[in-house]
Structures are given as C-alpha cells and as structure tokens.
Design a protein around this nucleic acid. Sequence first.
DNA 1: TTTTATATTGAACATCGATTAATTCTGCGA
DNA 2: TCGCAGAATTAATCGATGTTCAATATAAAA
Lengths: 203, 203
Amino acid sequence: MGRRSDHSRKELEQMLIVEGHKHMADVGFSRFSAREVAKRIGYSIGTLYNVMGNYDQLIIAINTRTFVLWTDYMRQALGSAGDDRIRSLVEGYFGFARANRNAWMAIYDHHLPPDIRLPEEHDALRGQLTELVVEEVAKVLPADSRAQAPRLARSLVATVHGHCMFDINGSFALMGEREPVELALARVRESLAAAQVGAQAAT
Amino acid sequence: MGRRSDHSRKELEQMLIVEGHKHMADVGFSRFSAREVAKRIGYSIGTLYNVMGNYDQLIIAINTRTFVLWTDYMRQALGSAGDDRIRSLVEGYFGFARANRNAWMAIYDHHLPPDIRLPEEHDALRGQLTELVVEEVAKVLPADSRAQAPRLARSLVATVHGHCMFDINGSFALMGEREPVELALARVRESLAAAQVGAQAAT
DNA sequence: TTTTATATTGAACATCGATTAATTCTGCGA
DNA sequence: TCGCAGAATTAATCGATGTTCAATATAAAA
C-alpha cells in the first residue's frame, strides 16, 4: 500500500484530531482552517479529507475531544475536592471554560445541519459530563426523591452553563458582575435546597 | 452628488441592516454572506463596505437589531400578560429564540476581536432587554432588598439563557427533556422565593 | 519482476471577506 | 447653460476557505 510514513489510518485520525484541537485552541472557531491542521501534521489537505470525510466531522471529533478533556478536568476537581462537591462541580465547569476559551466556545459555535445527527459514539462520550453531574446531584437529594436527579441535574447544568457563557463572552463583565462563579453557585444551592425541603414536605 | 438612486446614507444603512437581518434569519450565521446582502438590495459589495465599514460592524448592527426586536417582543408579552409576569418573561425569552432561531443564535455565534469593544450605542440598545428584567424582578422583591434586583436579575437571565441555549441547540431534546420552559421557570421561581424569604429573615 | 491495491498528493473550482482604482453621477457656482 | 469637484458605485483583484478528484507514489502480492 502506498503510505509514505508508518502511521495507520487510526493513528492518522488521532493525530489530526489532537493537532486540530490544538489549532482550535490557538486560533478559535472562526479562524480555524482544515488546511492548517493538515499542514501541522505534515500531510496534505487531500489526506485530511480522505480520513475525516468532511469539515463538519473534523469539527465534531475535535469538539468531542474537548468534552473528554473537560470531563477529565471535572473528575480531577471532584477527586481533590473537600466536602463541598457541588462547589467543585461549578468551579470545574468555569475553570475548564476559562482555561480553554477557544476550544470550549467551539463546542457551541459549531452547528451541524438540522438533518444530520451526532454519531452515537460521540453522544455517549459527551454525555458523560452530564452523567457525572447527575451522580453528584443524586447524592445530595433525599433518598425518596432521587428519581428526579437526572432532570434536576440537567437543569442545573443549564443554569451554570448560562452563567459560564455570559462570563466567557464578556456579558457579565460588561454589566459589572465580578463573581459569576459565586452567582451561579448561589442559584444551584437555592434549587438544591428547594428540592431537599420539597421532598421533606411531600413526606 | 453622485447617487444613482434616491437613498440617503442613513437610509442605505437601514436597508442593509434590515435586509441583512432577513438574510441572517434565512441562512444563519455560518452561511451568511455580505455579498448576498448587497445583492438583495440591488447594490454592489463595494457600497456595502463603504457604508458599513467592515464585516464585523455589519454583523454587530444586524445583531443589535435582533436585540431590539427581541426586547419589543418581550414588552408585548408583558403587555398582554396576566398576573404571572415572571412566566411571561421566561416564555418571551424562549418564544423569540424559537421563532427566530438563526437570528437569535447569530448573537452568540459572533465574537468580535478581544481588543475591540461594542460601540456604546449598541451596548445601550442591547442592555434594554436586561433592564426590562431588572424592573420586573424588583417588583417581586420585598422593598428592603430591591437593591439586589440588578444582580439577581442578571443571574436569572443567565439561568434562563442556559436553558434556552440547550433547547435551541438540541441538547435538551437529546437528553429527553421535553419542557425546557417549565424547567427554567422552576429554577427562576426557586431563586425568587429564596430572595423573598431571605429578605424576610434578615428583617 | 510484474501486478495490484491503496495511500497520498496538490491543482482546480467556487466562494468568501476585504481593498482599491476607475467610472459614473449629481448638485452647485460661474 | 456649462463645467467641475467630489460623492457614490462598480468591477477587478487578492489571499484564503472547503471540497473534489485525476494523477502519482508506494508497499504487498503474484
């Protein structure tokens, strides 16, 4: 077979994704270039398209990698956490986004055509972040209302996400808000407290 | 002076913004084209650049228009609201985003270079949406804690925004969440309730 | 060695944002 | 009425994008 270097197809794909992720972190979604990614690993643009299929699939793979790194980051934050695991989750969410602005924003900058869905494998990998939150929310809820954990957890992720978004895109800074993390954490605490007394009252 | 049609500079700018907004609503941020906007009003691309300056300023103007339409939409929702004005706000937020997906998303898809700020005029126009929420939040808070209204309102906007974002980009649908509006409203209610009893307790 | 299969290339294409020289038009003063 | 300064507009140009695909190069099989 006509390979010039000794990389298997899978290895080549990994190199493209890893280097593509770095390129995304460097220049951001709007200045991202598939040509540049190919150049960075010493291959031509044609090879990139043969391996990745098209632009969307390259971006999807890069963004899924961001999710994986993000999930690892949050797990580590939980691992070295004290009692206040909820705070660790919120700080982990913000911490990763702030430390990886371009890559993090690319997740939400990229929209695939409405008729195309995420490959299931990517869904599963990305979903682990939410699953992690569901687990922690379940721990905090009274035993008899743990069934609500998934729905509440998704809602709290959305809450934190909104705050994180406004932090990253400068909206909060513009409005003079200087502690977005504490703000988000306050909202999360209120909702968790409500879920706790709500369950108590229903007993 | 050498104008071929009878539109003043200001009129031309308005035409570009209005038609640009329609084009954005039609094709979305990623497929948006300044050339196409110029073509749609029967002018050349050069004229567009002479009037608007550059691409970013065109997008900024279009997005500010989206904010203005959004604010009007919310005011109308409040105008025809019953007692539950908080619900009207949340439903208005989602309602506009859902009815104007492309234009709404373009607001958050567009990032201007970090060294360039939004012109003050645009800041003011866009800020009215938040001001509207601040007013309503203040109404619901006890008199002695109204000073916290701006900060709490911004936080609640972020909360709703996160839910709306997950609704629009399909995350909620993917996770099986079918009533994002109710979910967001529940979070807002909990935080408002907490602020109310919090003030009561401090009395 | 010859054949075959496949990995890889990079020029070609249409389109994009951005710039600018050249052209066209218009209102005003002489 | 005429001429012209200057504003308005265009068309051509540039470098770059995603994408395609015939041509090429290479390693394994025959």
